[in-house]
Design a protein around this nucleic acid. Structure first.
Lengths: 177, 177
DNA sequence: GATATTTGATATAGTGGATAACAATTATCA
DNA sequence: TGATAATTGTTATCCACTATATCAAATATC
């Protein structure tokens, strides 16, 4: 497994002559311009998982580009909206973000006036996180873009039933594996 | 979406009192120690995709730890074995690794005597990549570990039919999305 | 009231991914 | 043929993300 965004850019556009199956297949294939054999790689779940994830994130970024939101930022806004009154540690932990790394991320969102830190009255150590009006507006627009462009394209590719089944299996792996 | 390895470490171990459903539900829930609501996040394919991918890679590393191979390194060895006579550009492109980043990766594998660069006779610019005997031996052991520990655990969790269906859908996304 | 824990924050390091540029070599074609 | 373009491996460098240690302020524990 490896996988980045690059991949089959140049290599795939190479001429692909069908490899004739004589003695030294692969070596001859290399001498020609044949496509490489993935071999067991195509059976490795992790490999396809990673490549699919990159594709999906890439498409997410495209679809939500007018709002300049990354998948991570979108998830934070979603969580803040559904869970008012929570502090940084709670939000970060739920999303699997380490608290030190969450600081800069919040700085970014707060500087764009999408959310705000408010000192808690009960516990003056913690910051209660709240969506601003602008944050709610951006989130609403983002939800629409994600549903109508991003997820819609996935559902179209897989079919609704498969899409649901895929989501269930991925959740199962994420939670129980 | 966000997701790193950390996640539900501390927050999940917090006391989870069932939130009573009166007026200000979520705010009250925050006042107590209730679990956070993922909301639309659980319907976002990219979110589960990323979390599942992290879990799978994590498990891969554990299973193949005795051989000290990352998923990326394993994929390189696999590809070299199935495609002898190829150069760095071809291998890197197929795996979605950018050529500049592939150099250090190969240095690592070569310094462990798992593969070797050989100057091509036809084109003295390129390096033909070959597995060493040790590389083949390590790859063979890695394949066994991956099949018997890593993939086996995934198949056990999902069931063989679902596992296959999942692989097909992920490949479809990776290739056609 | 002394000690430990938690929270947000800073500094820092490691890793993966991306671009520009370069020398050596090979391909193109006028 | 010879000038120019393209390719290969490489280096340097930058950015984003992840991870750990540490700190001061505030709170919890006993």
């Amino acid at each position: 497994m490896t996988v980045s965004k690059a991949a089959t850019d140049k290599a795939a556009t190479d001429a692909i002559k069908p490899a004739r199956s004589n003695g030294k297949e692969a070596v001859e294939a290399a001498a020609e311009g044949a496509a490489l054999q993935l071999g067991e790689l195509s059976e490795l779940l992790g490999y396809s998982l990673k490549r699919a994830q990159l594709k999906v994130f890439e498409d997410f970024l495209r679809c939500v580009a007018p709002l300049q939101l990354t998948p991570a930022q979108f998830s934070v806004l979603l969580l803040l909206d559904k869970n008012p009154g929570r502090n940084q540690t709670e939000i970060a932990n739920t999303l699997g973000i380490l608290r030190p790394n969450f600081v800069a991320m919040l700085d970014g969102l707060e500087s764009r006036d999408l959310c705000a830190r408010m000192r808690s009255a009960n516990d003056r150590r913690s910051h209660i996180l709240v969506l601003t009006d602008k944050g709610r507006a951006v989130l609403a627009r983002a939800k629409k873009l994600v549903a109508s462009k991003h997820e819609a394209r996935l559902i179209e590719l897989l079919g609704p039933a498969n899409h649901t089944a895929l989501l269930e299996m991925l959740s199962k792996i994420a939670m129980e594996f």
